[in-house]
Design a protein around this nucleic acid. Structure first.
Lengths: 236, 236
DNA sequence: CCGGTTGTTTGCGATAGCGCAAAACGGGCC
DNA sequence: GGCCCGTTTTGCGCTATCGCAAACAACCGG
């Protein structure tokens, strides 16, 4: 099995307060794997046999209703954990994880978790911190869906994606993984049609440039303004 | 200061895996306080100086936008913790907590948390579990707001309230704390007007009986049906 | 280089739910 | 017992957004 260099992961929040030699021990329990673009890492409802740390690539976590509709729970960036079902005492994954880019992950067996946190309590504290942060973000998202119009929500979503995974390009910021209108719709609680209309509009105003699964923010500042705009009318 | 009997709280999830004598030590760091109905326990944005365990009563956690709109994040029931800002490494409370009933809480200073989890790692593990569960519930809520119609969402909200804080009464289940249409609107991402219309309709069909800040589910079973109903039309 | 597949754009109704306004209601307080 | 205030109800027009359908466009594999 490929050995993972501790120096590559030592700085991650997950391992804060863990001594280097302990880190080595933790990593010895993991294996690494590569998931090609568009492959499924685990499926909602499946036995939660493992938990993951993303090293390279991007992973989309999505939740599906009984009737087949989905929402994107989040996009996972390198350095983040996902599939932490055991942290909440769940035996099954509450969402589906799919690689949106060729991705590399570290995989621990779920069964190792209790022992790991007992030996290295910092792991539990760190995980609590990240899960807590996600909870707060989740509440913010509920607040937005509940109180803002679609256009503002899409603006917020793009700004967040740009912050999280934006790559500077010539004149603007590009979201550096493939993302469709449908995906954005599923992040903002709307339909791909509405997202398409909004982006078309923005494109005409020079706010963004976009194409097939590709979005570049050309004028982030004005998008921020849009995101914060109150419901009342624009320029009379 | 009133001494808290360990036997009253020993069974709570928060203290799972904590030895009785340790529990005693943990409780010694807390003080208890009583908040009368409608009093504010802490305000969004305030310094997170304490975290709380609810012993009696009910607490509403709500988040407010810059423009003054709010959502109800959750209702806290006895035995649950709240105000865990430190768990996510936040210096300020992300929401406002208000007692909806006369309530009694245990209060620990935020500063005690790091020491507590170091000495009693089970606390971190237990808290991780509850925060993780809340995160999942939060995702479920996003899924509902994004994919269901208002009526279904209200149905789900009432069923959850009934499960969490329902009191059996003559013919039905009563939500055993004061809750207004506005509150329900803020839980489901709609307006008090719409909630009022829906409840009026349900009342006529004998599904619920309600009044000023009071709701009784008369026919939970049919409400479940409503909650699960797909968007398509009702009886042709 | 071509055909198929997947993602995007856009037009055009249809409508669920909002927002405003006003009236009715209920309960506690003096 | 009567008044005042917060809550609830309800009517009515409005519109943001959906939903469907159809035409495009871009990429992929052969």
């Amino acid at each position: 099995m490929a050995k993972v260099d501790t120096s590559l992961v030592a700085h991650l929040p997950l391992f804060g307060g863990v001594k280097p030699e302990d880190l080595d021990e933790i990593l010895r329990e993991a294996r690494s794997a590569r998931y090609p673009k568009n492959s499924t890492i685990f499926e909602q409802g499946a036995d939660a046999q493992s938990f993951f740390l993303l090293l390279h690539g991007h992973v989309r976590a999505a939740k599906t209703t009984p009737t087949g509709e989905q929402i994107v729970v989040r996009y996972v960036s390198p350095g983040e954990t996902f599939g932490l079902a055991m942290a909440i005492g769940a035996a099954r994954y509450p969402a589906t994880a799919m690689a949106v880019d060729d991705s590399v992950v570290l995989i621990w067996p779920t069964s190792a978790w209790p022992r790991l946190i007992e030996r290295f309590p910092a792991l539990a504290a760190n995980t609590l911190q990240t899960v807590g942060t996600r909870l707060q973000e989740s509440h913010t998202r509920i607040l937005e869906i509940s109180t803002q119009q679609v256009e503002q929500r899409v603006a917020h979503a793009l700004l967040r994606l740009a912050k999280q995974s934006g790559k500077k390009v010539d004149h603007g910021i590009e979201i550096d993984f493939p993302i469709s209108r449908q995906d954005i719709a599923q992040m903002t609680g709307t339909t791909l049609h509405t997202v398409s209309r909004i982006l078309s509009g923005w494109e005409q105003q020079g706010l963004v440039e976009s194409g097939r699964q590709r979005i570049i923010l050309r004028d982030p500042h004005r998008i921020v303004v849009l995101a914060e705009r109150t419901v009342d009318s624009g320029p009379a």
